[in-house]
């Protein structure tokens, strides 16, 4: 079954600044089916974050529309959860309170506890549930942010360069963990990244974006089976190909 979950239909976004008009996005269309893992890859300033924010409902497109399961997206919704580039945890809430941010007023207490327990377990933060964000390392904080997104029980996870502020080892580890999460939960995941290897390691499909104005230049299927290896010949081959497409 290949149900279309997210449909981005010819959206454009124009910002007006003191220096004039900036076309951040121009006529972007793509679809994303249920349980698919799609990456949006491009250099900084190509509008990929803007695109994700529009899908998240945090910004409105200047024209065009985004459908989620057939309904137009008009704002943030319970079926989509965002993980930002920075963890953006609330400093005055503990890890478990942060994780339950989106559901604490909406669920029964017993259900709430169950969900939070499960998600903290999933990201390996159960021993740190009473800790405050400032007591966490960067990787742990980002895991807590992922837990917050999972506890929201969305159909789709929207990740905006979630690992870009982490060091290489932590990033690799969290990528593996994200892979596990995706397999276990079968969520639809849209990942924004500027890291070719990250996109290749994780996603089934890569949208390559080019800047000014931001457009989707090409869509690349990644036919490599999981778990993937960075040193396999097909991986290296695809990486070279994408690199060439980005530069040209």
């Amino acid at each position: 079954m290949n149900r279309r979950l997210v449909e981005v239909g010819a959206i454009a976004k124009t910002f007006y600044s003191d220096w004039g008009k900036v076309e951040a996005l121009k006529k972007i269309s793509f679809c994303c089916s249920k349980s698919e893992f799609v990456s949006i890859l491009g250099p900084s300033g190509c509008g990929k974050t803007t695109l994700l924010r529009i899908i998240a409902g945090l910004e409105e497109p200047s024209s065009g529309e985004v459908l989620f399961a057939g309904n137009e997206i008009k704002g943030p919704g319970p079926e989509r959860a965002v993980v930002f580039q920075e963890p953006r945890l609330f400093p005055w809430l503990t890890v478990e309170e942060n994780a339950s941010l989106g559901i604490s007023g909406k669920k029964r207490r017993s259900d709430l506890e169950k969900i939070v327990n499960r998600t903290l377990d999933l990201v390996g933060l159960t021993p740190f549930r009473k800790a405050y964000p400032h007591e966490l390392s960067g990787g742990m904080a980002q895991r807590a942010a992922i837990a917050r997104a999972l506890a929201f029980e969305p159909e789709a996870l929207l990740l905006d360069e979630p690992f870009s502020a982490l060091d290489a080892q932590t990033r690799t580890r969290l990528q593996e963990e994200l892979m596990d999460l995706w397999r276990k939960t079968e969520k639809t995941i849209i990942l924004v990244t500027h890291d070719i290897e990250e996109a290749l390691m994780l996603s089934q499909r890569i949208l390559i974006m080019s800047p000014s104005p931001g457009t989707v230049k090409e869509t690349v299927e990644v036919p490599i089976s999981y778990p993937r290896r960075r040193d396999s010949s097909e991986f290296i081959h695809l990486k070279k190909y994408i690199l060439g497409r980005i530069i040209s």
């Binding site: 999933l122 990201v123 390996g124 159960t126 021993p127 390392s137 960067g138 990787g139 742990m140 982490l166 060091d167 080892q169 932590t170 580890r173 963990e177 596990d180 999460l181």
Partner: peptide, 8 residues
């Protein structure tokens, strides 16, 4: 998932 803290 194994529980490990990163080396950072």
């Amino acid at each position: 998932m194994p529980l490990h803290d990163e080396n950072s």
